[in-house]
């Protein structure tokens, strides 16, 4: 793990040679700095999720609208590639920082307690609620994401029948591209993808339930009067995203039946 952390810290080493950036990179490399970067990257990814969900909700609008949206994205060309690269970098940074801070925390307690009990009362989840599951849910989301890319970016999942979508695309229903609408529907109704997606999205909900409010706290956004509201908004956001995506799975099933 330490070797991994060292590799992940290479970008920081190069970045620190940029004029004026040395102190900032040093500030970002402490435990607090790393958490701040995690918060920023996490919230950026949340921004992506909002955009992604907004686009995907076009599924409800029907085949034509959705395919138009897909075509519009495809037409962006290099801009889309750049955005995808940016997203990838942010994602890898978030992941790398997670591993790095976890390594720091593991090293901070090498001998475990015989018994450990929270003093915060009852949680919906064991291990101190969502915050105790960030690494696990993050890993599940990663698996989900890889599957998702295989399914719909590369479209090479052997368990999915892409033929109707390709055929419809070839027939010109999506401007020469694959008919993404049909492809999505196909993926969301096939096993094991739909189960992986469901699991992945529940994990995402849990991850965000703690992640969003934690990011706010890490960025210093805290006020005695407003904190309860911040917490509520964070929770609503987290489960809004998760339920929004899950509703698409439900929709695919309903349409297929």
């Amino acid at each position: 793990m330490n070797a991994l952390v060292r590799i992940l810290s290479l970008p920081a080493c190069y970045l620190s040679r940029l004029p004026g950036c040395g102190p900032l990179v040093r500030a970002c490399s402490t435990s607090v700095g790393q958490k701040i970067l995690m918060a920023i990257t996490g919230l950026s990814l949340c921004g992506f999720l909002v955009a992604h969900l907004a686009g995907n909700l076009k599924l409800f609008a029907g085949e034509q609208d959705f395919n138009q949206y897909a075509a519009m994205l495809h037409s962006l060309g290099p801009a889309l590639a750049a955005a995808e690269t940016g997203l990838f970098v942010v994602f890898v940074a978030h992941l790398g920082l997670a591993l790095s801070t976890t390594a720091m925390s593991r090293a901070a307690r090498t001998q475990a307690y015989e018994v450990m009990e929270s003093k915060q009362g009852v949680f919906a989840l064991p291990q101190g609620g969502a915050s105790g599951w960030m690494l696990v849910t993050g890993a599940v989301v990663l698996v989900f994401l890889v599957c998702h890319l295989i399914d719909l970016r590369l479209k090479v999942n052997p368990f999915v029948d892409y033929r109707p979508a390709v055929a419809a695309g070839a027939a010109g229903s999506a401007g020469g591209h694959v008919n993404e609408f049909l492809a999505v529907r196909q993926v969301l109704t096939s096993s094991p993808s739909r189960y992986i997606y469901l699991l992945g999205l529940v994990a995402l909900g849990i991850h965000l339930a703690h992640g969003v409010q934690s990011a706010l706290q890490t960025l210093g956004i805290s006020h005695r009067r407003w904190n309860p509201l911040f917490r509520l908004i964070s929770l609503l956001f987290a489960w809004g995203i998760a339920v929004g995506f899950i509703s698409l799975i439900a929709w695919a099933h309903a349409v297929n039946r």
Partner: peptide, 15 residues
């Protein structure tokens, strides 16, 4: 200094 002493990082669990 906190980092140098080998304390862990904060995950805002409020424990």
């Amino acid at each position: 200094q906190m980092d140098q002493e080998g304390f862990g990082s904060c995950t805002n669990t409020s424990e």
